[in-house]
Computed example of a mutant assay.
Amino acid sequence: MNRRTNIVFITAVVAIAAFASAVFLYQRHERERAFEQAQAQLGILVRDHSPIMGPERAPVTIVEFFDPACEACRAFYPYVKQILAAYPKDVRLVIRYTPFHREASVVGVQILEAARDQGRYQHVMEALLEAQPVWASHSVNAIGRAWEYARAGGLDIERARAHAAAGSAERMLEKDMVDVKAVGVRATPTFFVNGKLLPSPDPRVLLDMVKAEVENKR
């Protein structure tokens, strides 16, 4: 190898090393930026008014931007329930209402908040989700039937309608929509696990993220 070839070779090695170093620094910067964003978002992901399922002081928090009229939320719920059952002391679920289906969403939230007031939140949620294809149908206006299905979940309808008439659900929705826009949520369900965005709508990925956070906290 002559002197000129040797110089070219060394220059190429240096260039590759510089490129690899730049990629490493960029990736580290992106990880740090993502972590900082997640930490900054923690303050708006969880609010005092938000419904919680699971221990209030659990070390791992799943935040779900949720719409009771959303088909994908309905499909995801059994997996979320399994995760809560698998980690009864370690994981809590925080619900953030995201009314992307308009009237059906608002009625669903009214019912859920009335159920929370009566201590029947999870029971009524499951009743609504089970019957969602009927009352939240896009082709048939059957939104009023949501109240019937909520009754099957143990809801006192008279008390619930009075609670809804007071407007507390609408006030909560206004607050939640401010955070929905701030976080940039555009679809439901959207999940965060201890402030980290679920990268893909896959129950297995959600379970893996939760498991990793639980193990990290123990």
Rank of each mutant, 00 (worst) to 15 (best):
A160D: 08
D156M: 10
A187W: 09
H163N: 15
A146Q: 00
Q132V: 04
H138P: 09
D176K: 02
T188W: 11
R161M: 15
P189S: 03
P199Q: 12
M177D: 10
A150D: 01
D156N: 15
E158K: 12
Y149I: 09
K196S: 13
L129K: 02
T190Y: 14
P189R: 03
M172W: 04
E170C: 03
A162K: 13
I143R: 12
H163W: 00
L128F: 04
D208T: 07
A162F: 00
L155E: 01
I143G: 06
G154F: 02
S168Q: 10
N141W: 07
K181V: 06
D156C: 08
V205R: 13
L155V: 03
G167D: 12
L207N: 09
L197K: 12
L207T: 09
V210K: 05
L198G: 00
H163F: 12
V183D: 12
S137L: 14
A136Y: 04
A160F: 00
P201T: 10
A162N: 13
N194E: 11
R145F: 01
E174V: 13
A146G: 04
V140P: 00
N194M: 03
L206V: 06
M172D: 01
V185N: 13
V178G: 05
V183P: 04
R145V: 03
K211V: 02
A169S: 14
G154E: 02
E148H: 10
G167M: 08
R159V: 15
M209A: 01
R204D: 15
M177L: 12
I157T: 12
F192C: 02
E174K: 07
L155R: 00
R145D: 02
K175S: 06
G153Y: 09
P189V: 15
P133R: 01
P203A: 15
M209E: 02
A169V: 05
G195R: 07
V140A: 14
L198N: 08
A136H: 03
S137H: 11
G184P: 14
R204A: 15
K181E: 14
E174N: 13
G144I: 08
A169E: 07
V134G: 07
F191R: 09
A169T: 08
A146N: 01
V205D: 02
M177N: 10
E130K: 13
L155C: 08
Q132S: 06
P199G: 11
I157P: 01
A164M: 10
T188Y: 05
V180D: 08
S200Q: 15
A136E: 15
N194R: 06
A165C: 12
P203C: 08
L173A: 09
V193N: 01
L173T: 04
L206F: 02
T188N: 13
A182N: 05
R204L: 11
L173W: 05
I143M: 04
A131H: 13
K175F: 03
V183L: 01
P203S: 14
L206N: 11
R161Y: 11
L197H: 12
A131E: 13
K181D: 14
V185P: 06
D179G: 03
P133F: 05
V140T: 07
L173Q: 14
P199N: 12
M209G: 03
D179Q: 14
M172A: 07
M177S: 14
Y149E: 11
A162V: 08
V210C: 05
R186A: 15
G167Y: 14
D202Y: 11
H163I: 04
